[in-house]
Design a protein around this nucleic acid. Sequence first.
DNA 1: TATAAACCCTGTAGCAACTATAGGGTCAAG
DNA 2: CTTGACCCTATAGTTGCTACAGGGTTTATA
Lengths: 140, 140
Amino acid sequence: MGNMTIGRLGRETSTKVETIRYYEKIGLLPEPRRTAANYRVYTDAHLNLLGFIRRARELGFSIDDIRDLLRLAAHGEAPCDDIDRIAAQHLETTEKKIALLMQLRRELRDTLESCKGGRVAECKVIVALSPEPRGGQTGA
Amino acid sequence: MGNMTIGRLGRETSTKVETIRYYEKIGLLPEPRRTAANYRVYTDAHLNLLGFIRRARELGFSIDDIRDLLRLAAHGEAPCDDIDRIAAQHLETTEKKIALLMQLRRELRDTLESCKGGRVAECKVIVALSPEPRGGQTGA
DNA sequence: TATAAACCCTGTAGCAACTATAGGGTCAAG
DNA sequence: CTTGACCCTATAGTTGCTACAGGGTTTATA
């Protein structure tokens, strides 16, 4: 009762069919067995795994990160120091991204404030521009 | 006094030389004049512009976004409704990213908590795994 | 039963935004 | 006058997909 085609698997995990085949090609998702007509047949195990992968991707883990996580998980009894390390590192870069995005949000809000009915010349986003890079031809 | 080589420009803006040439190739950064030996010579205007570009990139604006911003800025007197639009749209996606990352941060913290001295099997990150996708061979 | 729509297959090329490499030429210092 | 740091072009590689092209299959329905 857990057998499904690639299309169904895609629908259940909000993943495009091409993406699933791509994950298989790069060895992230194990090859499923095939029907006589060479159609892939997926199980619930694939469903769970792909769900995990998609979730991790959404959260910004790289495919290499995920590979590491899966490799470590495959052991099953190892202490999860290594997983700790990956997660901690990811947490750190996440903190940085959040800080950067919060700064951006503030600047965007400021921009929208100051731009209201204003001119481009006053736009904070545009500040530091005025390029005209072929300016004076002060030769040597 | 504002003339510099590509290497210097790169150092001043924390941009790799290749990236600068790439920006030129895709028409984002205007072509500078050249020395007799065909070396690029950049001005302060380039410095400002590239600074703006890099900052915008860091904040997550796509190159197409930046192109739009620059095009609008080139006008100089147009009302900045369009810039508003770009910024507002970016603000929206920024909010979403922040929310996602905050969720991630929480989950990473939980993970690090629960993983402390635990086993992979108990790792929250790893939950929903146990793949073993070639499980029972319940044929038809 | 035919036939069309909806699905599946492989393989390759394209996307963004760089980054790296190969195979050169130039310029400043010792 | 040579060494090393810099510059040049052009092309291929990276990550994580996505979109064809050019087929076969299965399913629903007339």
